[in-house]
């Protein structure tokens, strides 16, 4: 590795880190984040309700881990991470253009790729944090009586990892969409709740064109309960392939977004 290349990498890493901390602290405080935070914490609230009702024998007894696997994870996987990724991912560039604040970033000694990557990482980290916190809390509440069983933590770890991968992947995709399309929300909604929801049930290789396919491949197939139909006709890819594909998809879209952002000109209207 030539020294000048090394220096470049070092500079890029430093810039990315600075952009990251900029937007992480900015987004942390914004009102929108608070609202989304409440949204991702509602399952915890739900877990509490379930737990109380179990203690007071108000409902039939269901295993905590069953509720966790079938409902909480389904809620996060099929709904919340899509909404979060869509909003934060498309915000990476769109909010700079809408708020006309792009200039403040592009006149600093940080490369445009570093802006995209840093901001993407900041937002992804923030929403992964949000989701993880919600998931972990609901998990603990629901399994209050079995906290000593190690196998349960494996499940928790696996679920959190899958959700984190999902957020990473979707946010990358929507970052890219936000970089090319001016009005990315409509497209994002149709993609999230149309394409991802329908194509995943198609047979053969067709379903491999969705991101959710790889995410579900990482989860064990669920046979019982109302939500089993969601995994209807899943022809899972192997764990290795799935993880590889998720990282690949994220990387490809982020690189595309960087390239586009570096060479596309954004003209802020007065």
């Amino acid at each position: 590795m030539s020294p000048s290349f090394k220096r470049k990498i070092g500079f890029f890493a430093k810039s990315t880190k600075d952009v990251f901390s900029f937007f992480f602290s900015l987004a942390k405080k914004s009102r929108r984040t608070k609202i989304f935070f409440i949204l991702s914490f509602l399952p915890v609230f739900m877990a509490f309700v379930v737990k109380f009702s179990q203690i007071f024998q108000l409902s039939r007894d269901i295993e905590g881990i069953y509720i966790f696997n079938n409902m909480i994870i389904a809620f996060y996987l099929q709904f919340l991470i899509l909404i979060l990724a869509l909003f934060y991912g498309s915000s990476v560039t769109s909010e700079e253009l809408e708020g006309k604040t792009l200039t403040y970033l592009t006149t600093r000694p940080v490369s445009k790729s570093a802006i995209i990557v840093g901001k993407y990482l900041a937002y992804t980290a923030l929403i992964i944090f949000m989701v993880t916190l919600g998931v972990v809390f609901s998990f603990l509440v629901l399994n209050l009586s079995e906290l000593r069983s190690v196998s349960l933590y494996k499940i928790l770890f696996r679920d959190v990892a899958v959700l984190a991968l999902g957020l990473m992947c979707y946010t990358a995709f929507f970052t890219f969409v936000g970089t090319i399309l001016k009005k990315s929300i409509m497209f994002g909604l149709i993609f999230s709740f149309g394409w991802e929801n329908v194509i995943q049930y198609f047979p053969g290789s067709t379903q491999k064109f969705t991101i959710v396919h790889y995410l579900k491949s990482l989860l064990p197939s669920v046979s019982r309960g109302r939500f089993s139909f969601l995994l209807f006709r899943l022809e899972p890819s192997s764990t290795g392939t799935s993880i590889f594909m998720l990282f690949l998809i994220a990387a490809v879209f982020i690189v595309l977004a960087c390239v586009l952002f570096t060479y596309k000109e954004y003209i802020l209207k007065d």
Partner: peptide, 9 residues
Amino acid sequence: PEQDSFYGE
């Protein structure tokens, strides 16, 4: 810059 714009909050 010329435009009167800032980060939200």
